[in-house]
Each structure stands twice: as structure tokens, then as C-alpha cells.
């Protein structure tokens, strides 16, 4: 367990408040299912992350579809989602997204209200670290989850530092446990 609490870059130590590590993947799935307005944020490294049947974008699309999540594609990633005909995906720079998430008056991409759970994956480690730090400090009511395989101390919850194969099985299990919402 201690290895899981090690940040993805040696010196990226946060302050006194740091992320809890999920005991098991089913907890992630049930948190997503319980959320009223969840948002999945996919970063620019996603195409480089190889999965069993594609890359992290494919996993993101599955999570988005099964969990009925809105997806925010950061960097220049939107084209990849469009190519794969994913729906409910919005393009936004990572910094802008962080800025809006800390604004309680922001009503989301669809104008229907602020998000209550934001899940991050596929971002540059240190950028995600910083955006999560901004949210930890200035959006105290927002719950955040890091689905990356390197521990993100500034999230509310994180998978923690795990190797690639373990990470992939965790993601698969999360997807399997996300029943399609009606």
C-alpha cells in the first residue's frame, strides 16, 4: 500500500491534505454511478497509453458511454474522439477547464449545472498535479478522482502508483462495473 502513495515524480510532495487511495476498483465505479453530474477529463497523453484493444481514448469512450459521462478532451485531443465517433465530448484547454471547475457559477458544457465529480486520466503528470492542486485549494466542494497509474496527491481519490498491467486490469474492472445508466 505504501508504494501506491508514492507520487509519480519524486519531489511532487503535496501539503497536509492528500488523496485517498481506492481500496478496490468497484469503489470507483460506484462513486461514478452515484454522481449526479460526473465529468471525465482526458489528457493529451491518452493516445500514447496502450490498452488491450487500443488506447486510453477507447477506454475513455467506454467509460463515458457506460457511465453516461460527459467527456472533456484537453490539449488537441478532440480530433481523436471525433474520428472514433464518440458523443458528448467537448474540447477545452486543460488550464481553462481547471479555471472553470473552480467557478461554482459555471454550468458545465451543456449549461445544465456544475459537475459534482471530476475524473482525470491521460494527462501530463505534473499538469494534472497542478490543476488538481488548484481544485483542492479553490474548489473545496468538488470531488476529484485521478485514474492515472501514478499517485496524484492533490486529488480527493486516486488509484495510486501501480504498474501498467495492474493499471489496465483496474481500468477494465471499473468499466465492467459501470452498468449503463438508464
Amino acid at each position: 500500500m505504501s508504494a501506491k502513495l508514492r507520487p509519480g515524480q519524486t519531489a511532487e510532495i503535496a501539503g497536509p491534505k492528500h488523496a485517498m487511495v481506492f481500496p478496490k476498483p468497484t469503489v470507483v465505479a460506484s462513486m461514478i454511478k452515484r454522481a449526479k453530474r460526473p465529468l471525465l477529463v482526458i489528457g493529451s497523453k491518452a493516445p500514447e497509453i496502450v490498452t488491450d484493444d487500443g488506447d486510453l481514448i477507447d477506454y475513455a469512450i467506454k467509460i463515458g458511454k457506460k457511465g453516461k459521462l460527459t467527456i472533456a478532451a484537453t490539449g488537441h485531443l478532440i480530433g481523436e474522439f471525433k474520428k472514433r465517433k464518440a458523443k458528448n465530448v467537448y474540447s477545452i484547454p486543460f488550464m481553462n477547464l481547471g479555471d472553470r471547475l473552480r467557478d461554482t457559477d459555471w454550468n458545465g458544457f451543456d449549461g445544465k449545472g456544475h459537475y459534482d465529480l471530476v475524473i482525470f486520466a491521460g494527462s501530463q503528470y505534473y499538469m494534472e498535479w497542478l490543476v488538481l492542486s488548484g481544485l483542492k485549494n479553490f474548489a473545496p466542494n468538488l470531488r476529484t478522482i485521478s485514474l492515472g497509474n501514478l499517485y496524484q496527491p492533490n486529488a480527493s481519490w486516486a488509484i495510486g502508483t501501480v504498474n501498467h498491467s495492474e493499471w489496465m486490469s483496474i481500468l477494465k474492472e471499473i468499466i465492467e462495473n459501470l452498468e449503463e445508466k438508464k
Binding site: G15, P16, K17, K136, N137
Partner: peptide, 25 residues
């Protein structure tokens, strides 16, 4: 152009009162 802050460290350690935890509010 409002600042969006992303603390690299949640603490302040610039004086002997500290370290002070400034997380959140």
C-alpha cells in the same frame, strides 16, 4: 484575466511562525 492559482506547495515556510498550512480557506 483572472488568476487561476495552482499551488506548487500548500504551505508557507517563509517565517518562523511557520510552516503554515494554507490549504483551502
Amino acid at each position: 484575466y483572472k488568476p487561476f492559482y495552482m499551488p506548487l506547495c500548500d504551505l508557507c515556510c517563509l517565517c518562523t511562525y511557520g510552516k503554515c498550512d494554507l490549504t483551502g480557506d
